[in-house]
Design a binder for these strands. Structure first.
Lengths: 344, 344
DNA sequence: TTGAAAGCGATACCAC
DNA sequence: GTGGTATCGCTTTCAA
């Protein structure tokens, strides 16, 4: 058996109508307003559909009805589970409203971002979700007079006006530091970089705020890394392990789980302080690697799915009431997850 | 400035035609056969397009022309970089031919696989790439009389006839083992599981073949794990570290990079053999974690992008010559990547 | 309830 | 080259 029908023209409504002995409009009614059709006609049309293997053409339907059931999601980096979570959330919410989400991977390339925005625009999708390159957001948004509604994820557009949904990284940093302080840690260290990345600097600011709230009872040192990979963490970990015992921090906030893992690993290998006996370590992102690691890692979970759901909700609302809709900026809260690495 | 035009009807060809003082057919020509239009007319129409911000409607175009420029890719697990690589490859190849790839994340759920297959079918995409749940492939393929061509990735459909592209895992296992043997290792161990997963058992068979070729000069032991995560590797690593010195393997083939990483980590922590001095370790998949690790990991790289490219090539060929096309089964070769963990 | 016909926004063929 | 027009497959209004 072949998967494909070959070059045979797929059956149309006209064929179904003929076979069921009804008019074409009636077939349409069966598909869209079944309750307005007499039961036996319904039955007759439906079996005709089955027998012919009729598959409605969504393009034609959308064209005629002026509506679409697909939402396009342009994603900057699908290899980052944060964005994949957003996609999942978007899908969940969309599905609730009978809509579908199709993904376009812009793969950290500004040009592809534009290409896919245009594609979705020309495809006349119901609306567009855009998780852009942070630096590129305004360019993309102002590049076209986009004919459809756009909701931006993970970035706050500057000049351009649009709904956007972001994660509160400052709060995440605060929660992490606060947790360490609440469990008795007094000498904190923040490890991460580069600070030009706003997620990193935002998290750092949150840490600073928590420390400031302690009125001088807690100290904070900063160890900058080139990036937020495991290798950066290992480097920093060795650096810390080499410190004078009196200078050792007893609580470490890493800008990302991979960094935290690298630190823990370096401590083990190079005879640094014990985790969590001597030092608490907390990461960020809730990577699989975090809970799967040898010492399960405390972390701050990004509200990825929630962001996807919220963005989709905003988008659908905007689509439905084009007139009265007011753009919103949502700032969603991350969640503290306590595991072994910060439990004495 | 707002991103959206509000509820204004987007300009159509008719509007452009009127503004440029030409017929609607001419506008179409400007878009599709610019060389057949007199330069000054071209210019006039183009500026009308710009001024009005006209964006062609792909649905209408596709409907009228009976063609589509989008390829739908139903992906079982986007969180696995192997599949994301396929998507990248597909995109590259598609782009060469003026086509676009849109992704649907079925997220390891059989139902969603079907939902998206139907969506693409009804959207009348040019063709569909399907990376299915291996167990679900035949069900999906035979579920609908799919109106469009389908190429299957990473799974060989059983009953159903269709093009498919898979990775040669047996060869990968062979290459890995062969590499260890070629560099002087004689007591090999294979670590991985569950063997019910064909990638695992295929890789194991490849290892067996390499060992068999050595005519008894090389030994092989097997350590089964529950899964192919880092935690499974750590467990196995401790198990190995606890062996009598005489029973220690000097070469380990792990079924996946994470497993290999876990092993290396366990060796360090629990005082096992040194890598690579006492024992070579090689993983599989070429994860980022593999080259980023403390001891950069030798591995076998899956031909993900290549699979995506090949599948797209097959798909386009099938679309173009529906008559003469013969289904093909491609089995692509992985690549050995030697790093420090297997270099004495 | 069902049928007939006018769009939806483009393409492509055939005259001029 | 350019203009008119049938057509793509479906929705929806209006009569019957």
């Amino acid at each position: 058996m072949s998967v494909q029908n070959g070059s045979q023209r797929p059956p149309r409504m006209e064929d179904v109508a003929k076979r069921a002995g009804v008019a074409i409009g009636t077939v349409s009614h069966v598909l869209n307003h079944p309750h307005k059709v007499r039961p036996d006609t319904l039955e007759r049309v439906r079996s005709a559909i089955d027998e012919l293997g009729f598959v409605p053409d969504r393009r034609a339907r959308a064209l005629a009805a002026g509506t679409s059931s697909v939402i396009g999601f342009v994603v900057v980096d699908l290899s980052n589970s944060f964005f994949l979570d957003m996609a999942r959330g978007a899908e969940q919410e969309a599905q609730k409203h009978g809509m579908n989400v199709l993904l376009a991977n812009s793969d950290v390339q500004a040009e592809k971002e534009l290409v896919y925005m245009h594609l979705f625009d020309e495809e006349r999708v119901a609306g567009i979700l855009l998780a852009p390159l942070p630096t590129n957001a305004d360019d993309v948004l102002s590049a076209g007079r986009w004919g459809r509604d756009v909701v931006v994820l993970n970035t706050v557009p500057g000049e351009t006006d649009a709904c956007c949904v972001t994660a509160n990284n400052e709060l995440g940093g605060y929660l992490a530091a606060r947790h360490l302080i609440d469990t008795g840690r007094r000498a904190l260290a923040f490890v991460g970089g580069p600070f030009s990345l706003s997620p990193v600097s935002d998290r750092f600011r949150g840490v600073e705020r928590a420390v400031a709230e302690s009125n001088g009872h807690v100290s904070l040192t900063t160890i900058k890394t080139a990036n937020v990979q495991e290798v950066d963490g290992r480097k920093a970990g060795r650096q810390i392990a080499a410190l004078d015992p009196g200078e050792l921090p007893d609580g470490i906030v890493a800008a990302a789980d991979l960094v935290a893992l690298g630190i823990v690993q370096a401590f083990r290998t190079d005879g640094g302080p014990r985790v969590p006996a001597d030092v608490s370590v907390i990461g960020y992102d809730n990577n699989r690697a975090a809970w799967d690691s040898d010492v399960p890692l405390s972390t701050v979970a990004q509200p990825g799915e929630e962001m996807g759901r919220a963005a989709t909700r905003l988008l659908l609302e905007e689509i439905r009431s084009p007139g009265e809709h007011r753009h919103q900026r949502l700032h969603l809260e991350p969640t503290l997850i306590v595991r072994q690495s910060s439990t004495r």
